[in-house]
Amino acid sequence: MKKRFTLLGVVAIMAALVPTSTAAAATDCSSVSTGWAARGPFAVTVETGAPDTTIYRPASLGACGTYPVIVWGNGTGVGPNTYDGLLRHLASHGFVVAAAKTANAGSGREMLAGLDYLATRNSTPGDVYAGKVNLTRVGATGHSQGGGGAIAAGADPRVDTVVPIEPGPLGDVAKLHGPAFFLAGQDDNVVPAETLVYPRYQRADQVAAVYGELAAATHLTATGDGGGFRGPVTAWFRARLLGDQRAAAQFAGANCGYCAADIWSRFERNAKAGG
Results as ranks from 00 to 15, higher is better:
L8V: 13
V10F: 08
V11M: 07
I13V: 14
A15K: 12
V18A: 09
V18N: 01
P19E: 14
T22S: 11
A24V: 09
A25T: 10
A26H: 10
T27R: 15
D28A: 15
S30Q: 14
S31F: 06
V32F: 04
G35S: 12
A38V: 06
A38R: 11
R39H: 03
F42G: 00
V44Y: 03
G49H: 05
P51E: 03
T53D: 04
R57I: 02
P58C: 08
A63T: 14
P68Y: 07
I70D: 02
W72R: 09
W72I: 10
G73E: 06
T76S: 14
N81V: 08
L87A: 03
L87M: 09
L90R: 04
A91D: 01
V96E: 01
R109T: 15
E110H: 05
G114E: 08
N122S: 15
A130Y: 14
K132A: 09
T136G: 13
T136E: 05
G139Q: 09
A140F: 06
G149N: 10
G149Y: 10
A152G: 08
G154S: 03
D156S: 09
R158E: 02
E166H: 09
E166T: 14
P167H: 14
K175L: 15
K175W: 00
H177P: 00
A180K: 10
L183A: 13
A184N: 11
A184I: 11
D188Y: 10
N189C: 01
A193H: 01
R203P: 00
Q206W: 02
A208N: 06
V210R: 03
L214D: 00
A217E: 02
T223Y: 02
G224H: 04
G227R: 07
G227M: 06
G231F: 05
P232E: 05
W236R: 09
R240Y: 13
D244R: 07
Q250Y: 13
Q250E: 14
F251G: 04
A252D: 02
G253S: 11
Y258Q: 00
D262C: 00
I263T: 07
R266K: 13
E268H: 01
